[in-house]
Amino acid sequence: MEIPYTVKPRPDTGLYNAKVGIWLFLASEVMLFGALFSSYILLRVGAPDGFWPDVATGWPHGLLNIPIGTFNTAVLIISSVTVVMAWAALKQGDFSKFRRFMLVTLGCALGFLCIKTYEYNEKFTHYVIRMKDGTAVTGHLDINGHSPRFWTLATITDKKMTSVKVHVDVPNQFRYPVGMKRPEVSHEAGEHGGGEHAAREIKTADITFLQAFVPATGTFFAIYFTMTFLHGLHVFGGAMVLGYFTFFGRKMYESDPERMTNRIEVGGLFWHFVDLVWIFLFPVMYLL
């Protein structure tokens, strides 16, 4: 006996096997990300009040790059549209059109991941520094024009540096939730375009804590990195599957077009889900 309904839908359910399978799988994915979003809520509700520059202990705002995040959202939405068009092209029997749309989708996926990498790197070079007098700042280190990653106080003392040059962030309106008062900043140096002060020398002896924006820096960063990384893995996995069918799907398409179309439909469903997760992640992480 053959396994039935691998391609044709079962009459009483109206679905072929893989479609049932993917919906069930997506249900479990909803529970996975649902648990992570719930954790986000619980951690945030339990976090002490504290905004910029108190980013290591409070729940920071406005540290993520909103324009870039918005752009990435658009990239994923476009890819969601093109994946449908690719599937439709296959339904119409136009393989090369399918391939074109799929290449756009894959391009979007690649673009998304590259931009995300850039964003991560931006965080790894961005520091929170706490001083002996109880104040704190965030900003980029400037070591002979370079902006190093993953340094800690120990790195500086090991290098026997007596002071570090820091481009200190200015509190812009995003760094405070609506209704929170922005503190006055009084420094000699004037503001310049990117929301950063000109460099300031901070004595090593004055520093009690120095850490990049890495997961260990605070629960906000922990959940931000964990969730976006997991999402990134999903983007990567989905792109691998879709890419496989784009580049190696021709044979299957020629021997059994319906099966191939089904697979693209199933892969597309997964892709939409991955987009949907981002559509929740973006406002929750970047805007709220």
Binding site: L24, A27, S28, E29, M31, L32, F33, G34, A35, L36, S39, L43, P48, T57, V214, P215, A216, G218, T219, F221, A222, I223, T226, L230
Partner: peptide, 29 residues
């Protein structure tokens, strides 16, 4: 299994991050 395991998977990932990357998902101040 389908609906109850994923939250533990999420929790497992977070605890793994706590252990390896020294975050504080489950560690109080």
């Amino acid at each position: 299994l389908l609906l109850a395991f994923p939250p533990l998977e999420a929790a497992g990932i977070m605890q793994l991050v706590d252990n390896v990357l020294k975050t504080s998902f489950f560690l109080p101040s």
